[in-house]
């Protein structure tokens, strides 16, 4: 490999590390109390995508409209269960940023394991980092091996 290529590889590695790990200026919003009503039925939540700001005190009011459902928040490990007619509340502090799935944790029929919603705490920073890495990877590969001169031995 030429020196140019080595430079490119080192540059790509550094850029990748920056994209993957660089701390970003966090947009600070004053923490608020948020109450979100979520209806659960076989096999969906409505609304299925929730958005809160980091630091918010979030209360999810779970209203089940057919059978007993639960709501377990990935990453936070907190959960709540609701029977129809008995709204329950789950309160937690949204102190981790990112996108987390929440799912039913009371077996509720065939598609129970796929009953999924999402809660976005701030921006989904890991997704942006991953998208950045993907584009970097493909660009670097294209530049690194620009025009294959001759057919290589198979």
């Amino acid at each position: 490999m030429s020196r140019k290529q080595w430079f490119l590889i080192i540059f790509a590695g550094l850029a990748g590390a920056v994209i993957a790990f660089a701390p970003l200026p966090v947009r600070v919003t004053p923490p608020a109390q948020r109450t979100l009503r979520v209806e659960a039925n076989q096999f969906a939540y409505s609304p299925a995508v929730l958005a809160v700001n980091p630091g918010d005190t979030v209360t999810i009011e779970l209203v089940s409209t057919d059978v007993v459902h639960g709501l377990y928040v990935d990453g936070y490990g907190v959960s709540v269960t609701a029977d129809p007619g008995q709204t329950t509340r789950l309160t937690f502090t949204a102190d981790r940023s990112g996108s987390f799935r929440f799912r039913c944790n009371v077996t509720c029929g065939a598609l129970h394991t796929f009953m999924i919603g999402k809660i976005q705490v701030g921006s989904n920073i890991l997704l942006w980092r991953a998208l950045g890495l993907t584009i970097l990877a493909s660009l670097v590969a294209i530049i690194l091996f620009p025009r294959p001169a001759k057919a290589q031995a198979a």
Binding site: A130, T134, A141, F145
Partner: peptide, 23 residues
């Protein structure tokens, strides 16, 4: 893990496509 797998997979794919392109 998923990011690693998908980005790694893409790099692998790109190299494969480039080898095909060369051929």
């Amino acid at each position: 893990l998923q990011t690693l797998v998908l980005v790694g997979g893409l790099l692998w794919t790109v190299r494969t496509a480039q080898k095909v392109g060369t051929e």
